[in-house]
Nucleic acid binder design. Structure first.
Lengths: 339, 339
DNA sequence: GGTTAGCACTCTAGAGCTTAGAGTGCTAAT
DNA sequence: ATTAGCACTCTAAGCTCTAGAGTGCTAACC
């Protein structure tokens, strides 16, 4: 779309100013504040053109302009300038990945979601880390008391998952050990999402004596994997309150209620991702969920080892500081890769 | 406080009606809706008395009356009638305690918090289950890989807590086993909050060779116990949106932000409890936290085994269905006791 | 003496009106 | 092509007005 250089500059100015002030931007403001060497009248003409082309909107006749969804899209694709985070911000991100503190991947993610939301003032959504995508490393069952054991699953990505399961009364420690050894041998190196079908088949053949116990265990494992799929970490859910466009209580309500439906959020985040630098930006109605059609979602995948195990996203109003959000995401994802 | 029977009836009617409608109640409404055999004029006189005595308030001259904090207090202490939950509701509560589903206490609590909030339409806050109050049963360390192990702590109340810890490279499996065995022997039967000081002393003496590793482990344990203290499960946090008194976005905001500060909530719930049937009701400004001074908190402790391990509370507007909330709480706590 | 009908009075919520101010689009001059 | 000037438009905010709900008081009633 061949926008003239001047139109591009004006569009950029409108977006920049509107993002900052949340007020419709008038020709006067642009002329004064962005010193582009033209009179307001000239800018008015250009803005009228931009409106006709669909990049700008006028809330009402005598108001200034605001970017349309198409306008934001153009801005994000063509006009946005890369920005650098300042050193403190970078440091705070690096801090949560520092070696001494690392125990569990989940802890990092929990912290990352907090940090990202506080750095951006939007809401962070992190999906994963998903076991399914990683390879099986080992499985252990630790007896807790007569009826229960703790099933621990370790993936090669370092993700650890554990769950209490019921053990059959009759099972001796020796038998348990044999089963565990057997399972470990059989499952080694498989990606977790392959295990389901395969395990059951093999179990039937080789371990039919303990089959009830194992199937129960397995059902549990499946459940816990399914849960795993929609595991979403949220940060800064109350940040929307700071956005003037969410002064309306109904809007806030619908968003906050959405935040409780993790399966919907997981779905939102698990859409296939394609985009420059691996970053996907969904603006307004580009999102399918009605609740976020006045929002934008900036997201990207993150890796543990070489495997993509999840998505990290930032949700804010369409009037969002896209460049800053992108910078934060890149910084965080970069750190994940270094793990 | 000698309120005449008639005044009591009228006060009860005002509370009942106001709880239902959220509108100030007029003399006319009471006469008509609660058929008490007096004319509005009589009721007006009584209401004027009740206002003077501090049980009722008038938002403005030509409005009806609403209960004052003192009015609610009197209602709760003297006028409230016990109600029965219907069978479906009882069943749904019993359901989450049914034997087959039980794996971990935490799961039950998570479910309970959801259920309680959906049954009452208020927000549920559950503190615990706290390890500290229960006795140590066993401890195990399961190696995960060369550097890490999973520390599992089991309490006699059935609460299980686990955490990934770093293991020193030099530690052999045999040594680890010996240490674990030793620890188990020494700690058996102690309540968990006694372990801290004692363990360190004894370790110093007997295990000085591995002391670094153990102290690290122990620090971790302490951290995780501290965390444990302010472990709060929330349910139905968006239910406030349904309350007309929270139409104001600022109020909603401050409450929701409070909900993110678990240590404050823990503090709110861990106040000493005394009250009829073990149920404590804090009305409006009886709560210390400013954010909940337009709210009431109904709470009670729950037990696992014989030990009190936590608190379960329901937070709603002062204009709350107290009798229903009390009934739900009693039902839930009763089930905990049966565990 | 307690109860009640009647009535003047009070107060709020909401509707309708008015106006200042911001910003536009058009025209004509540069 | 750009710009100054100006009439025009529209909103947000303040204002007034009014209907309606509910009161408190007085005087009559049982």
């Amino acid at each position: 779309m061949g926008l003239s250089a001047r139109k591009m500059e004006i569009l950029r100015a409108v977006v920049t100013d509107y993002v900052k002030t949340a007020q419709p931007v008038g020709s006067r403001t642009i002329a004064r504040r962005y010193k582009m060497g033209f009179s307001p009248a000239t800018i008015r003409n250009e803005m009228a053109d931009l409106e006709e082309m669909g990049y700008l909107l006028q809330p009402h006749t005598s108001a200034g302009r605001i970017p349309s969804q198409k306008g934001y899209r153009y801005y994000v694709d063509e006009l946005m300038q890369e920005i650098q985070l300042d050193d403190d911000e970078k440091k705070s991100i690096h801090g949560i990945f520092s070696y001494e503190k690392i125990r569990e991947v989940e802890d990092i993610i929990r912290q990352a979601s907090k940090l990202v939301s506080s750095l951006t003032n939007y809401t962070s959504l992190i999906l994963g880390p998903r076991l399914k995508k990683s390879a099986f490393k080992q499985l252990q069952i630790m007896p807790i008391d007569r009826q229960r054991g703790l099933l621990v699953l370790v993936a090669d990505t370092g993700v650890i998952k554990n769950k209490v399961i019921n053990l059959p009364q009759a099972l001796s420690q020796g038998e348990l050990d044999r089963i565990v050894t057997y399972l470990n041998r059989r499952l080694e190196g498989l990606t977790i999402d392959r295990i389901t079908a395969r395990l059951i088949r093999e179990l039937r053949r080789d371990l039919y004596y303990h089959i009830n116990f194992l199937e129960a265990t397995f059902t549990l494992l499946e459940e816990s994997l399914a849960e795993d799929e929609s595991r979403v970490f949220l940060g800064g859910t109350t940040n929307i309150f700071n956005q003037p466009e969410f002064g309306n209580i109904e809007k806030v309500k619908s968003l906050l209620m959405l935040f409780e439906q993790h399966s919907l959020l997981a779905n939102l985040l698990s859409r296939p991702l394609t985009g420059v630098d691996g970053i996907t930006i969904k603006i307004g109605r580009e999102n399918i969920l009605e609740e976020v059609q006045e929002c934008s979602l900036v997201m990207t995948t993150y890796c543990l080892g070489k495997e993509v195990v999840g998505t990290i996203g930032i949700l804010g109003p369409t009037r969002m500081e896209y460049s800053r959000v992108v910078a934060v995401l890149q910084q965080v994802v970069g750190q994940f890769e270094r793990l």
